[in-house]
């Protein structure tokens, strides 16, 4: 600090401090509102999770410390849901990024009707998840569903499978439903990333005699990384909180119960407010740890690329 004060003129430092104060004052109202709408409910949820509320005697509650957490972490259900949620997130997010990149590359080509197509591909994303879940449920209905009928008509395997009643298959349907719905969202973010890559870079590559594939691997992908990472962060956070798809499609049967579903069952169906809140907080902590890892490691790349571009 001392060296810094010596190097920098005292005047600037004073103004600096004044400016910071002003900045603080200007952001204070929004910080206050943030605290009110976010911190208060969070604090309350944490408080609830440290208590148990009687389901047999009205108004009875007791402070149990971390017991709800200990019980949750000792239960098979939590770890099963934990594993299933991560499996779902891993599968769906990777598929969404691969397909989303492909889709973005297509939409980035110059062709007639591009603007219309860009709007149209977003349609699945505009459909309410519960509605799309019901649609997928109908399509995979045994005996009368579209998918099962088409598969059996073509003599392909899977036509006689009860998709939502079978381990593995049920997860496949849920992943498909999620990929169908949210790939356009990933594509849109990646498309935005594609559009900031300057044409000159490609021209230079062409002059140097790079092949299409080399251009893609050595120019497009690295420059697209920040956009892909951003899409990955959004999608992962959403996927780890998945609720509506398994709730509608399987009710958590056949290895598809997610962390959020477990919390919902305890809170809403069983009215175990303390236990359910602990599960919510655990879900939240999981999502937070994952996003912090993303921001820390992948976020570094965003800055590197930004610097390189400068």
């Amino acid at each position: 600090m001392a060296t810094r004060t010596l190097q920098a003129p005292a005047k600037t430092s004073g103004r600096d401090r004044a400016e910071r104060k002003l900045a603080f004052r200007m952001t204070a109202p929004s910080l206050f509102i943030m605290a009110l709408v976010a911190a208060v409910p969070i604090g309350y949820a944490i408080w609830l999770s440290l208590n148990q509320y009687s389901v047999r005697t009205a108004g009875l509650s007791r402070f149990v410390g971390l017991e709800n957490y200990v019980n949750a972490l000792a239960s098979q259900e939590w770890w099963a849901a934990f594993g299933q949620t991560f499996l779902f997130a891993g599968l769906s997010v990777s598929l969404e990024l691969i397909l989303g990149t492909a889709m973005a590359l297509l939409l980035n080509l110059a062709f007639k009707g591009r603007a219309v197509l860009r709007t149209v591909v977003l349609l699945p994303y505009a459909i309410i998840t519960v509605v799309s879940a019901i649609t997928w449920q109908t399509m995979f209905q045994p005996n009368m569903g579209l998918v099962t009928n088409v598969l059996s008509a073509l003599g392909l395997p899977g036509g006689d499978v009860v998709w939502l009643g079978e381990h593995g298959y049920a997860m496949a349907v849920i992943v498909m439903a999620d990929v169908w719905k949210t790939t356009p969202f990933a594509a849109l973010i990646i498309l935005a990333g594609l559009q900031v890559i300057s044409a000159e870079t490609y021209e230079a590559a062409e002059l140097d005699g790079a092949s299409k594939w080399q251009t893609f691997v050595n120019i497009t992908l690295p420059l697209l990384r920040p956009a892909i990472v951003l899409a990955a962060i959004f999608r992962t956070m959403d996927a780890l909180r998945v609720f509506d798809l398994p709730f509608v499609l399987t009710r958590g049967a056949n290895g598809t119960e997610s962390m959020s579903m477990l919390a919902y069952t305890q809170l809403r169906e069983n009215r175990l407010v303390g236990e359910g809140s602990a599960l919510s907080i655990l879900t939240f902590l999981t999502v937070m740890v994952v996003s912090v890892i993303y921001v820390r490691f992948a976020g570094g790349n965003i800055r590197d690329v930004a610097k390189e571009e400068q």
Binding site: G59, S61, Y264, L267, R271, S280, M288, V295
Partner: peptide, 29 residues
């Protein structure tokens, strides 16, 4: 900025979780 990003994420996620908290039962009758 990094912290702010993480904090926003945390706030958003918690807000969602916290909404499920519901009110604690009180007052025997």
């Amino acid at each position: 900025t990094r912290k702010a990003l993480a904090a926003t994420a945390v706030a958003a996620a918690l807000l969602l979780s916290a909404c499920g908290g519901g009110a604690a039962p009180q007052g025997a009758e």
